Amino acid sequence: MTTLVQAWTGAQKRLKAAFIDSPAIDARLLLEAATGATRTDILTDPYRELTEDQEALLNTYLDKREKRMPVARILGRKGFWKLLLNLSEHVLIPRPETECLVDMVLKAYPEGESFSIADLGTGSGAILLSILSERPAAKGLGTDISEEALAVARDNAAHLGIASRAAFLRTSWGDGLHDATFDVVVSNPPYIRSDVIPTLDPEVKNHDPMLALDGGASGLEAFEALAPEIFRLLKPGGRTWLEIGFDQSEDVEKLMKSAGFEDVATYLDLSNLPRVVVGRKP
């Protein structure tokens, strides 16, 4: 029989041979999921033997990863902020870069403060639910054009115990919502230029929904729609945080200013790339 340490070593070798970027981490995550072992178990009980079923499941996972299916897709879940979110093929895998946006909103609103927030194009609900999980006095709405994505977001809200403070609506951005309704509007819209998509890693172009990636010929189509729409939805003095592509800050800032926003600025992510454009409605 194979032991935990043998399985981990063998899995790493397979993923390395398939030119996977982080073979050790991916091998460990798949081994933990296949066996129910923790990271500590692998270190402190390395000679524990896998059952035949566990070994077969690990091999199935490794087959998928070798074909460049992301670990989060294989397991159907992904850690984001302090949450573990369920995923489906209909939602984008939340990225660590997006946590910058969550962090900025939380810094702007102290813990006891009540405010209303809209997350336009919510997907799995990652941004909205991360903020609501830290701010118990806040309430929010997530919109998405995909009913399948909204089903994932609702499921995440329910299992995190936030469903009473998070509503979800199928609509395009803010269509049908009343003017001057929200204190905060956030969005991580599709912003990749259509011609760039074929050059993306297989993990992204083959496994993330095109609806969540494709920003049109300019990469700016979503922002052109969002800037005036967010301005309309915000209460006077309300603020917005938008995730952007690394080369879009100048264009998105222009769109925001044209829509009437003040205090428009771009903030960098942890890799020192432009990541979040902010603005305030006068």
Rank of each mutant, 00 (worst) to 15 (best):
T2I: 14
T3Q: 06
Q6I: 08
Q6E: 15
A7F: 13
A11G: 11
K16P: 02
I25Q: 07
D26M: 10
A27M: 05
L30T: 05
L30N: 03
A33W: 06
A34I: 09
L43Y: 14
T44H: 12
R48Y: 01
T51A: 01
Y61E: 00
K64M: 13
R68N: 13
V71R: 00
L75R: 02
G76F: 01
K78W: 11
L83T: 01
L85N: 01
N86P: 00
V91I: 07
L92F: 10
R95W: 03
A108W: 08
D119Y: 13
L120A: 12
L120K: 15
T122V: 10
G123E: 09
G123H: 14
I127Q: 09
L128G: 13
I131N: 03
A137K: 11
L141R: 13
T143D: 06
S146R: 07
S146W: 02
A149Q: 06
A153D: 04
L160V: 03
R165K: 13
A166V: 03
L169N: 07
R170A: 08
D175P: 03
H178Y: 06
V184M: 01
V185Q: 08
V186N: 01
S187T: 11
S187K: 10
Y191V: 13
I197W: 10
P202Y: 06
K205G: 03
D208K: 03
M210Y: 08
A222G: 08
T240R: 09
W241L: 01
L242E: 02
I244S: 05
D247C: 06
S249V: 04
E250K: 15
L255A: 14
F261I: 12
E262I: 09
E262D: 14
A265D: 14
D269A: 14
D269H: 13
V277P: 05
G279Q: 04
